[in-house]
Design a protein around this nucleic acid. Structure first.
Lengths: 252, 252
DNA sequence: GAGTGGATTTCGCAT
DNA sequence: ATGCGAAGTCCACTC
């Protein structure tokens, strides 16, 4: 890590160039103007802002208030930095669509090259597992009268299933997807159903639960005479939150 | 400004509390875990991140790559900070919807309280004037066969007009708004049309161009038998960019 | 205060 | 590569 407080622009320039060269995260705080030109155009006069240039070339310019950056660029930018007329000019160029974001620093209060190591996986809930829990908690999410019999282990990595019976006693296999499901997910359910049908009765329903179905997945689903019931991870998290404290009933 | 490099957690705590107390922007770089619970839930294991807490209580947690914050809170958060088990725990609580974002710092590499002054107005183009230019440049934006006759000066501050003729030779008055137009904007066009109709022929069309119409404005527009054609500044900026280099034809 | 639609949306997945 | 739809979307504005 390399931090300088109230650096001369020349020193700040070195920090900036060093960060770019080593593909490290750059942090710059100071008074600057910001100009953007590309899909749209914007201008922002002199003021104190925080500039972050990440390892992948993503650029963020933050004002002292607000969640959103006032200007930005997604990752993959190229950079050109130089001292011009006693000002530190940092130009971020995005190839496609062609855009340029220009920061002109009059004064730098804080310049830092950061060595950030971050290998952790980000997990957003509700997971498919929690979606499964949610269905066991409130089986009416599937349909009125649905009764879960057994939560199943994954058939293939990435899938979660629930077995149950509908109100008329017909076996039901449920496949859950955390996000928009594609054809392959529907095929998985189909394959699974086929296996069960060969082992047991042919009278089994298959219900696909996901926030959404891709177009091709929907066609396939109709062709295979499977059913679809929308269910989002968000909805599940809400229900789990609300029902928190209750015991999760397990069925055999 | 108050910056400490590689502070003890106790010193970092003081920086954090000081920043909150004085409503200053807080900058924290270090190894932390991040937990979010609210509309959804998320977990992020130990890793190096940048934390920004802004003057308005907006919270941003950034990993070393990517445009988007991995976790965040919009402005208006309350905070509780403390040392727990040799870790610096910062909790941001959002009242509505009720959400909590918890950062658990194991090590702080950089802690800063920033005094940022930023009073400049952010300007995003295209302006109404540029939207007008765009229509003169590509009259088909209004409708096929439209021919501009004269760009007009503003009738009232905030408005731009274009005069022209449609393909059948009927005079057309165009009113432009940079953003969603309300009733008063439609009334302006109406007033203007009335004036022209009293002076010249009664056979004049009025076309309103804006990214969107407010509901009330749309009702009024229908009542007054005016027309509406969507046009966004973004679209204009794109066209202006594309057609850049061409001469802007002026009509008398 | 709830609802609606735009965004320099970004991002991801299907086509 | 292109395009469509979701997002913990956020935000501004209408009702």
């Amino acid at each position: 890590m390399n931090v300088i407080v109230d650096p001369e622009l020349q020193s700040a320039l070195e920090i900036v160039k060093g960060a770019h060269a080593q593909r490290k995260t750059l942090l710059l705080v100071g008074a600057c103007r910001v100009d953007y030109k590309g899909r749209a155009e914007s201008k922002l006069g002199l003021g104190d802002r925080i500039l972050i240039v990440k390892e992948d070339g993503a650029v963020l310019v933050h004002r002292p208030t607000g969640y959103e950056p006032v200007n930005w660029q997604p990752g993959g930018c190229m950079f050109s930095t130089q001292l011009v007329d006693d000002k530190l000019v940092i130009r971020a160029i995005r190839p496609k669509p062609h855009e340029t974001l220009t920061l002109t620093f009059k004064k730098v209060n804080l310049a830092a090259q950061l060595d950030l190591t971050d290998r952790s996986a980000f997990e957003l809930y509700a997971t498919e597992e929690e979606m499964q829990e949610t269905i066991l908690l409130d089986p009416s999410l599937v349909e009125p009268g649905f009764r879960p019999i057994a939560p199943e282990k994954r058939v293939k990595p990435g899938f979660m299933d629930v077995y149950g019976m509908d109100r008329s006693g017909t076996p039901v296999v449920i496949e859950i997807k955390r996000k928009t499901a594609g054809r392959e997910a529907v095929l998985q359910l189909w394959k699974y159903l086929q296996e069960l049908r060969s082992q047991k009765t042919a009278n089994i329903r298959g219900i696909f639960m996901a926030p959404k179905l891709a177009k091709g997945a929907q066609r396939l689903l109709e062709t295979l005479k499977l059913e679809y019931k929308p269910l989002s991870p968000k909805r599940c998290a809400e229900i789990l939150n609300k029902e928190k404290g209750r015991k999760l009933l397990r069925y055999l």
